[in-house]
């Protein structure tokens, strides 16, 4: 077990878990529209599957947003 901070909220997860698994477990809406920040740093999409999470990690899911002119 480990405590993570996901989108600002504390979350308990079973280890081992990688970023791709966390996205699946959290049923993140439209993962193709998501950019992941791990401990304030951008994480390449290709690295989601081989990035294991550990106690205290801070994960934010950022969404691409358009909007504006049209």
């Amino acid at each position: 077990m480990a405590q993570l901070i996901v989108n600002g909220k504390q979350q308990e997860v079973n280890l081992p878990i990688n970023v791709a698994e966390l996205i699946k477990e959290n049923k993140v809406f439209q993962p193709e529209m998501v950019s992941v920040q791990l401990n304030e740093e951008f994480l390449n999409r290709e690295d989601w599957i081989n990035t294991s999470l550990k106690e205290g990690d801070v994960i934010d899911f950022l969404y691409f947003m358009g909007g504006g002119s049209n």
């Binding site: 950022l62 969404y63 691409f64 947003m65 358009g66 909007g67 504006g68």
Partner: peptide
């Protein structure tokens, strides 16, 4: 940079 969608903005 600005983005908006549905009820959200960033």
């Amino acid at each position: 940079h600005g983005g908006i969608l549905r009820f959200e903005g960033q």
